[in-house]
Amino acid sequence: MILTVTPNPALDKFYWLEKLPETLLPTEEGLLIRAQKSLVSAGGKGINVSVFLAAHGLETVAMGFLAGHTGQIILRDLLARGVSANFVWIEGENRTNVALILRGREYHPIHIHDEGPTIPQDAVEMFLRKYERMLRYAEYVVLAGYLAPGLSPDFFRELAKQARARGVKVVVHTGGEVLVRTFPERPFLVKPDVREALSLGDLPLTTKEEILVAGRRVIQEGVEACLISHHLTGDILISAEGVWEFEARVPLSAFRNLVGADDALVGGILVGLVQGKDLIESVRYGMAAAVASAEVEEKFCLDQERILAEMARVEVRPSKP
């Protein structure tokens, strides 16, 4: 079983627009933007990974904090997609994240993200008891996304520590200080989220050389493998065994919705690993899943035949030191 933790779940709303006004500054009449199409789905990085895994027939349990009417919609969507849900309910309302996707510029969406409800201490304690119980049956745990207000920046570190003590492999898919703090617990794989800042702690991640320096530092700290996005269609895998560059030969114009592609990548890696593939082949499958997902308007491409077909477009080569 693969356990995913999403501390700050969201209801993702996508709006496809033919055009945007030249300025978003308010006029006297205000602004009215009409969408040609919209989609709604349960979101948050860990939840996205669980949805991807469940579609591949893998047993997965999603954990985190749900609140209010939005929480009910998130739960309903998850259950309908075959994900087991073990959430702690709290006061308030889960966040709603909006993505505006402009026709012709789908690879450059505009995001509006809520902050999410504050997690009270008694809910954290309840969560930790549930988590400890679920860890007993987990092979992997995915700690993903940003922390909700009220959670300690050491939240993921504590969860990683507990998982390590039980021999459960940890994948961390988040950014900033929260990610860096998990390194002493020696996660199996870290995938820095670089949407807000092209950095890993105090190390920049702009060029390939910078990525290699940062990745090697992470490995020195005890992390088994680190996968860092180089650009939209390229990732670099760094481990103690070496460095590999992955490149998907896909034109940006093929993309329809990039939201969730990164999570399909993590989900795809886990599918590969559970199926017995080695890490490099698993990352190839993950990249194929990410590309296939970016090419459809729904958040994920869950068609395994199509993902396998995309693998032919994902090149991998060892990187020279």
Binding site: L79, G82, V83, S84, A85, N86, F87, W89, M126, R129
Partner: peptide
């Protein structure tokens, strides 16, 4: 329905009501 929402044996009644 794969909903694992539950309480522990020692969960206080006030928390059960809230949940």
């Amino acid at each position: 329905r794969r909903d694992l929402t539950s309480v522990d044996r020692d969960t206080p009644l006030v928390q059960v009501i809230r949940l």
